[in-house]
Amino acid sequence: MDFILQGVAQAIVLLASGDWETYSAVFATVQVSGLSMGASLLIGIPLGYLLGYLDFPGKKPLRTVVDTLLSLPTVFIGLVVYAFLSYRGPFGELSLLFTLTGIAIGQTILALPVVISLTATAVESLDRHLRLTLVSLGASPRQIFLTSLWEARLGLLIAAVTATGRVLTEVGISMMVGGNIKWQTRTITTAIALETNKGQFATGIALGLVLLALAFAINVSLSFLRRRG
């Protein structure tokens, strides 16, 4: 029990003293999840909108596929992305393996089904009178798209936060694709895995606290926005 309490105490000292190694992992995490969230929202929201808005043959099976991909294991994504980015793989020349961009690619694949599925649900649950109202007011398809997204903003926010939560806490992709390289691709989660292996609980706990704080901040802002929404 003692060493756990000691770990927490040391963790606070580490954080307060601005331990550069700890913060390097925090910055890497923020950077890579920012990148992957940006990409997955940019790709996922329009796709999710189309999936929720349009009626086409094969829509139901497609939704089932997307919903299945929600539970895609991170190690599997890591494996596939690794294989594609490896120097023997089809994209080996890009030299993206063991880089933050490489991790971001994997995390984008992880977040995309979440964003697409939840966006589609949000768009589907929009009032069915919305479209007629917008058309009757003379809105073009692009304006219908933008207004519908704004009307579904709460649902989109939930999609973004849920996806961020997954991206922030995953370790499989970061470890396999990123390689956990110190000062470069070491993120909070891979650092925790490593520190535990080394028996360095303090650093692990410190990083865990940062992760908790990030998740907490995101959830608080979400409930704040929801109340305002």
């Binding site: 009032d127 009178h129 007629l132 009757s136 007011l137 003379g138 704004w150 009307e151 929404g229």
Partner: peptide, 14 residues
Amino acid sequence: RRITMLPQEPYLLR
């Protein structure tokens, strides 16, 4: 743009 309609159950934007 010249023809507009008031649907039976109009939707008010949020």
